[in-house]
């Protein structure tokens, strides 16, 4: 009995989602593209983790690897994904399916195209409940209307009968969120949920995600290329570059003392909202070709702080302080900031 309880405590202390050395590849005509290459990432219960990085660095592929939804010909070739005590990569497809939408929900970048054009919004929410909760039609529909209220639709019953093409992008994303909430998931994976939206709508959606997270206590993996978004809502941040997480830590620590030159670059290139001329120093250069990843540091070509060692070796993760890790040989001096 006691033993059981301590075991459960342990399970509860363990991160909800643990990704270790995840490697995902696509076999393409021009070679094997390694979209994710040894990424390590944790999401604890009830926290919001921001996964940041420029377009093409492997964020979406990471998310799809978690849900087992990689498009053909993508496949996970190495690493481990543990969710709530289970190893997801070994799960059979039926167990994985029943996990999706029930324990792990996902919202996408293009809300308007993520909704099926030929079914009403209410139906698309209700079918999740019918599938996972075995609800009957009227009950599922009533619950769908409730969920639409929670994502702040003033007239949810009417909205349930409307079709995606009648809604704005922000409304579609709210419907997607209602759908994601339907079964009270432990984890919400939000892949660039605001990128396709207008700035004002972006703020509303972020605010809503934050509110829903507080109400339900679910954890959120918030994927974005926008550090500003992360700064607003995340408790922890992971910075991804060329298929791996190059820096991860608590939000404030990471923003105040960024360790990786890429993180520093991202912070500098962030547009400031507070007055003064905007400084948009984008980092010069581009991501390495995923079919020909170098054996040394991936950021070498673009790095302002590189030393000789970086040309030859790939920096392993280095712990800077408790729960702040970086993959860089160079210790940034305070004046380098």
């Amino acid at each position: 009995m006691n033993h059981d309880i301590s075991k459960r405590r342990q399970a509860e202390a363990a991160p909800l989602l643990e990704i270790r050395e995840l490697t995902t590849e696509f076999e393409t005509p021009s070679g094997v593209a390694r979209a994710v290459d040894g990424a390590t990432l944790e999401v604890r219960r009830g926290e919001i983790v921001g996964l940041v990085g420029e377009s093409g660095c492997g964020k979406s592929v990471t998310a799809l690897s978690i849900l087992g939804l990689l498009p053909h010909p993508g496949r996970v070739v190495a690493g481990e994904i543990r969710f709530d005590g289970r190893s997801l990569l070994n799960l059979d497809s039926e167990s994985m399916r029943s996990l999706r939408g029930r324990e792990i929900a996902m919202v996408f970048q293009e809300p308007a195209s993520a909704l099926n054009p030929v079914f009403s919004c209410g139906e698309q929410i209700a079918e999740v409940l019918r599938t996972h909760r075995r609800m009957k039609h009227p009950q599922a529909r009533a619950r769908a209307v409730e969920l639409l209220t929670r994502v702040r639709f003033p007239d949810p019953a009417r909205l349930a009968d409307r079709y995606p093409h009648e809604l704005s992008g922000g409304m579609c994303q709210r419907v997607m969120l209602a759908m994601a909430l339907a079964c009270g998931p432990k984890l919400l994976v939000a892949d660039e949920p605001t990128t396709a939206l207008d700035v004002t709508v972006q703020a509303q959606i972020l605010d809503l995600i934050l509110e829903l997270q507080r109400d339900t206590g679910m954890a959120v993996l918030l994927i974005t290329h926008d550090l500003g978004v992360v700064a607003q809502v995340a408790t922890r941040v992971a910075v991804m570059y060329a298929g791996r997480v190059v820096e991860a830590g608590a939000r404030d620590a990471l923003f105040e003392t960024p360790q990786h030159p890429y993180t520093s670059g991202l912070l500098r290139s962030r547009p400031r909202l507070s007055g003064g001329p905007q400084r948009l120093d984008a980092i010069p250069g581009a991501l390495p070709d995923p079919t020909r990843l170098p054996g040394n540091c991936r950021f070498f070509d673009r790095c302002p702080r590189r030393v000789e060692r970086c040309r030859l070796e790939d920096p392993p993760p280095r712990r800077v302080r408790a729960s702040h890790e970086v993959r860089c040989f160079v210790d940034p001096s305070p004046e380098a900031q």
Binding site: L69, P71, R97, R100, A114, E127, T131
Partner: peptide
């Protein structure tokens, strides 16, 4: 996208194909 989203909702493959895609 909506087919991927339908899978992400945990619908059975049958529903994904015969409802969401087929329609």
């Amino acid at each position: 996208d909506y087919v991927r989203a339908a899978r992400a909702k945990g619908l059975t493959e049958r529903t994904v194909i015969l409802k969401h895609a087929l329609r």
